[in-house]
Design a protein around this nucleic acid. Structure first.
Lengths: 79, 79
DNA sequence: TTTGAATAGAAATTCAAT
DNA sequence: ATTGAATTTCTATTCAAA
């Protein structure tokens, strides 16, 4: 179920602001996943999510921008 | 001294892999800054640094890629 | 290999204080 | 407005288990 869970994590994170792993856990449970913080900590690592600052001064998990750069700017020189 | 310290933090983070705030503290002390974890936690927030995964599986503080996108790709449509 | 419970470790915030 | 000490909160890892 790891892949299903991880792809659901991507969905969640991109559809609403998630500021802690606990909050992500709640969302997953809502969607019928039963798991724990330890597991999603690993998921977040594998998915290379980062905790970034939102406009309103809070934090939010997000897909690492470096991972999505090529979408909007295929020819960009990266780092 | 906040601005000096923060710009030094940017320098450090871009010149070597820093994986914890403690390690960043040590680097700062090497450079003559005397401060504490509480302060650099705030600095990191203001600088919008993110803790990203390195190629070798560790973590590293980095400038949020979303903040540097416009450099390599000024016309990119962001998110 | 993947997971959870427990723990260790790291980071954010509170609360004074300046 | 900025900071540090202490604390709380959050996250990563360990270690056993399946």
């Amino acid at each position: 179920m790891k892949n299903v869970r991880q792809s659901e994590i991507l969905n969640i994170v991109q559809s609403k602001d998630i500021d802690t792993q606990e909050q992500l856990l709640e969302e997953l449970r809502t969607r019928g996943f039963t798991t724990t913080q330890a597991t999603i900590s690993r998921d977040i690592k594998e998915l290379r999510l980062v905790k970034e600052l939102t406009g309103s001064g809070g934090y939010r998990y997000a897909v690492g921008a470096k991972d999505v750069l090529h979408i909007g700017c295929p020819s960009a020189q990266h780092f």
